[in-house]
Design a protein around this nucleic acid. Structure first.
Lengths: 196, 196
DNA sequence: TGAGGTTCTTGTTCCAGTTCAATGAACGCA
DNA sequence: TGCGTTCATTGAACTGGAACAAGAACCTCA
């Protein structure tokens, strides 16, 4: 077992539940390592999402895209984040989102067919993933409220504050797509900021 | 046990899992009946949400409200819907939303302190509530995408299609607050619609 | 029965954010 | 080394929706 590769994910789930050593090993044994080159898709709308992916290295993005070409970024995932379409994963329904790599990335996947067994072997995990779901829900509520109630400039400030590292790691037009504005307008917001 | 009062909620959870009669009785015994008069608050931001409420009769609304007076409606709940702040409920954290009655309403509450016992007595319930959480998440994703990518008119059409009964049951300025627009603008959208 | 609060509408003005177009910078890639 | 492509910036014209203001149509309850 490659200790270095798995140190981070153990730290991640241990934040919720402390696992004894043998359960950690059970958990790690269920993981699948996957490398995704830059710009490659990990999930396409219409497919069933059969994984939850922990980003060990690199950067991913999930987004929605409708038939009119309207696009909106749901989430960026860098080191120590999870990316997945949880709704599709849990319900086995076709996904409505896309997930792609923004950089060459290394992921640790939990496949759906291993999940039940894993819950039995490592009881604490159920709590971990329930927490993930709830964090997700809370973040989405905040996001919806901000999108509905705040002007773009405030949303951009909030984004910079919450994800300081992302702003010079992902292309700007994708940040615009996260904020729900055009790339041109984001550019103007930035120009305005420097003046202040 | 008042059969009539509980017929609907049994139907509601049975959609997910069929429960044997004795488990149904366990479930019903854990419920608390609560009447909320029109305009009365059920939950205020800052409080911990210690219930999940099934709307047996009436109509509720949950919404966010920030220090600048910005308001956004998260959800309407009429008969056969659940309303709660699940994030606060599950994590015991102070809520960030308000819930109020739009009509005199009868609710069936599950209190947080009864939940653990209930899961033990009625194993199928865990699945039911997980499904609720996931439906919630999915709905919120759709909503965020629509808010970011669609013009107000399209969002209004989608609202009418998805909740045909609500449009003449809920005051219009609250529908506007659900759509993320001003009441005045919604009024103009409606005027425009009639012309077509 | 009215009087006073809601709720909805309509018009005008104004601004945040879009669209379109042009330019330049940065980045693979042969 | 050069060349096509993607990406960021800037400007001008436009528009969806907000803000403000005023009137009309209501509940509702003393």
């Amino acid at each position: 077992m490659n200790e270095e590769r798995y140190a981070r994910i153990i730290g991640n789930i241990s934040r919720c539940t402390a696992l004894p050593y043998d359960q950690q090993q059970h958990f790690l044994a269920a993981l699948e390592v996957k490398h995704v080159p830059k710009k490659a898709p990990l999930l396409r709308a219409g497919e069933v999402c059969d994984f939850e992916a922990y980003v060990n290295k690199g950067c991913m993005r999930s987004y929605f895209l409708d038939e009119h070409g309207h696009e909106a970024t749901l989430q960026f995932g860098t080191e120590d984040w999870w990316v997945s379409d949880l709704v599709s994963f849990e319900q086995g329904a076709p996904s409505r989102m896309f997930i792609e790599a923004l950089e060459d990335s290394e992921l640790l996947l939990i496949r759906r067919d291993k999940k039940e067994q894993l819950y039995r072997d490592v009881p604490g995990l159920e709590r971990v993933f329930r927490m993930m779901l709830l964090r997700n829900l809370g973040a989405l509520q905040d996001r919806l409220f901000a999108t509905m109630a705040w002007p773009a400039e405030d949303r951009y400030e909030a984004f910079l504050k919450r994800f300081p590292d992302l702003s010079n790691r992902v292309p700007q037009h994708m940040i615009a797509s996260y904020l729900g504005i055009t790339p041109e307008f984001l550019s103007k917001l930035r120009a305005r900021r420097v003046g202040k």
